[in-house]
């Protein structure tokens, strides 16, 4: 005879079983499979052959992998910082009592719902040597800027497009955080003589810390997996200037048919994302404790 307590447990398990099965089959299963594949030589035509750590050793020796790794880290850092700052700035600007703020918010959010392919193609034309961006900069004294074909400018250009696309999305998140701060706090600070900057530094920022943590983590994860923007806008070039790890995984797996090696690069990318997340969690948890 099953006790009442166990029956409750079994019912609970029965309810969560489909979800667990889904994650096992479609999430963790493929992840484990990819990890296993990273220790094999597999060209998709013949069965995988065990090669131990050879894939990892070969990617470490590969200058293209090293360039892509560096690009990925630069891209994650650049995108995350600028997305966060821009989103916060936009949210603060919108969070006023100014007229037309709802229209502004909707307008800005449009960047996020446009199809990514269209976004990339439009920006390719905007960044053309004789495109709109350069034409707008010309009156300011700038000459021709080869945004997408100069290896020093191509990555900043991709980061700019990323910020343009995703900052409005995170602006909404920040805005929700700002609206959740009780207005009494600001009234009290005002009575105590705190000016705008001090109110922002000592009230808004600390109280937005959980939201900021969320934005930073999600923006970093989003950036780590970026693929279509560099793939469509620059194709990873010029040279290797904008080749990121996700692009390298795709090329290695599906163009060069080296699935084992592609899986090894995926594992490295996974490790980077995990490390970033853990570090951010530690930093922000400490920050929250400081403010508590």
């Amino acid at each position: 005879m099953i006790s009442y307590r166990w029956r409750i447990r079994l019912w609970g398990m029965a309810f969560v079983a489909p979800t667990i099965a889904y994650f096992l089959v479609f999430k963790y299963g493929p992840m484990l499979w990819a990890m296993g594949l990273s220790f094999t030589s597999y060209d998709m035509m013949k069965p995988p052959r065990w090669v131990g750590l050879e894939n990892y050793a070969s990617i470490v020796r590969d200058p293209i992998f090293r360039a892509a790794l560096l690009n990925t880290l630069v891209y994650i850092a650049g995108s995350t910082v600028f997305i966060t700052l821009m989103a916060l700035g936009l949210a603060l600007a919108i969070n006023t009592r100014g007229r037309g703020r709802r229209v502004c918010m909707s307008g800005m959010f449009l960047t996020n719902i446009m199809p990514i392919l269209a976004v990339c193609l439009v920006w390719r034309f905007l960044f053309h040597p004789h495109g709109l961006v350069n034409q707008l900069l010309r009156p300011l004294g700038f000459g021709r800027i080869d945004w997408l074909t100069d290896s020093t400018l191509a990555m900043p250009a991709i980061i700019l497009v990323t910020v343009w696309r995703f900052a409005p999305y995170f602006m909404v998140v920040f805005l929700a955080g700002l609206l959740a701060i009780p207005p009494e706090y600001y009234e009290a600070a005002e009575i105590d003589g705190a000016d705008v900057l001090r109110r922002f530094r000592h009230l808004t920022l600390p109280l937005l810390m959980p939201v900021t943590f969320f934005v930073v983590v999600v923006a970093a994860l989003l950036s780590a997996r970026i693929f279509l923007m560099p793939y469509i806008i620059t194709g990873g070039g010029p040279g290797n200037a904008t080749r990121v790890l996700s692009m390298l995984i795709y090329e290695t797996g599906f163009s060069y048919m080296k699935m084992g090696r592609a899986a090894a690069i995926s594992v490295v990318l996974f490790a980077i994302v995990m490390v970033l997340t853990v570090v951010q969690m530690k930093l922000f948890t400490r920050g929250e404790e400081d403010y508590a």
Binding site: D146, T149, D150, S151, G237, P238, G239, N240
Partner: peptide, 11 residues
């Protein structure tokens, strides 16, 4: 080769 041409021609 594509990368090489890009490096030579663009950079």
């Amino acid at each position: 080769m594509h990368r090489a041409v890009q490096k030579v021609m663009l950079n």
